[in-house]
């Protein structure tokens, strides 16, 4: 799936606000969002700030996406647990997976190994986006958001959306 197709799919499912902190895996998606007005992208300074901004947007009736690298999960856990899960604020977390299968720069290896487990430990629904059918993971995330009214994570590895 191309970046444009992926972003248009997100738009089709009603997402209309985005914020986050970049990752090279998310580069082209952020570029697309930033240059199209359908899903405005607000660059945040940190992942926790991004969750705060997305929470405000949700309270204002938007359907937000937060984009982040998995290294940003550390900054995101407190707002996820003490704000968005607590107040029942659903949003799509599009999280890149650095350190996947232990093949990456050293700073990504430990987090890369525990990313899925960490999200599962705090009870955030997790889907890994597949190359064959990226829509499947997004649909499953939306289903979890609607059922549980909490954020759901869709995990993006390198080379899946091009």
């Amino acid at each position: 799936m191309t970046v444009a197709e992926f972003c248009l799919m997100l738009k089709r499912y009603g997402f209309n606000f985005s914020t986050g902190v970049p990752c090279s895996i998310l580069k082209d998606i952020i570029l697309y969002l930033s240059s199209h007005s359908d899903i405005p992208y607000i660059p945040a300074t940190r992942e926790d700030e991004a969750l705060g901004i997305a929470t405000g947007a949700y309270l204002a009736g938007r359907k937000p996406i937060v984009l982040m690298q998995n290294s940003g999960l550390g900054s995101a856990i407190n707002p996820l647990t003490s704000l968005d899960m607590l107040y029942k604020i659903p949003m799509l977390l599009l999280i890149s997976w650095r350190g996947y299968q232990g093949k990456d720069a050293p700073e990504h290896l430990i987090m890369g190994e525990v990313t899925i487990k960490l999200l599962e430990d705090i009870s955030i629904p997790v889907q890994v986006i597949s190359k064959d059918d990226p829509e499947e993971a997004i649909l499953a995330s939306i289903k979890s958001m609607e059922e549980k009214q909490i954020p759901a994570a869709a995990i993006l590895r390198r080379g899946i959306i091009e």
Binding site: F17, T19, I42, A44, D48, E49, A50, L51, G52, I53, A54, T55, G56, A57, Y58, L59, A60, G61, R62, P64, N78, P79, T81, S82, L83, L86
Partner: peptide, 22 residues
């Protein structure tokens, strides 16, 4: 009033998300 009982530090960020959208 949105009493933000957790997520210390994020009141103004929530404010920004609201202000941009409304």
């Amino acid at each position: 009033n949105f009493y933000m009982i957790g997520s210390m530090g994020l009141a103004s960020s929530i404010g920004l998300g609201l202000a941009l959208s409304l």
